[in-house]
Simulated assay, not measured.
Amino acid sequence: MNRIKAFGAFWYDFVVGDDWHVAALIVAGLGLTAILTHVAGVNAWWLLPLVAFAALGWSLLRATPRK
């Protein structure tokens, strides 16, 4: 049981890391891309890199000190 718990803790730390907001935005971006692709028939490959770039920028903006 300890190995299963350690494996789960590793993946949680790897995916979520220090900022769960970024992980939530990436999951939302994956979901929105899937919905646009499968339901609306839109070629939405470009959406996930855009969401990832925006999430990274937002995370850096929150992490850097203001002057």
Rank of each mutant, 00 (worst) to 15 (best):
M1K: 04
N2H: 04
R3V: 00
I4A: 14
K5L: 11
K5G: 00
K5V: 09
F7E: 06
G8A: 15
G8I: 06
F10C: 00
W11Q: 05
W11E: 01
D13C: 02
D13V: 01
D13M: 08
V15K: 01
G17C: 14
G17T: 03
G17Q: 12
G17H: 08
V22T: 09
I26G: 05
A28V: 07
A28T: 10
G29A: 04
G29H: 13
G29T: 09
L30K: 02
L30R: 02
L32T: 05
T33Y: 12
A34Q: 07
I35H: 10
L36H: 04
T37Y: 02
H38D: 13
V39G: 04
V39D: 08
V39H: 11
A40Y: 15
A40C: 14
N43A: 11
W45K: 06
W46C: 07
W46K: 04
L47N: 00
L47K: 00
P49A: 07
L50P: 00
L50E: 06
V51C: 10
V51L: 09
V51M: 08
A54P: 05
A55H: 09
A55W: 01
L56V: 10
L56C: 04
G57A: 12
W58D: 05
L60R: 10
L60Y: 12
L61T: 02
L61P: 01
R62D: 12
R62E: 08
A63D: 13
T64K: 05
P65I: 01
P65Y: 15
P65L: 15
R66I: 13
R66G: 06
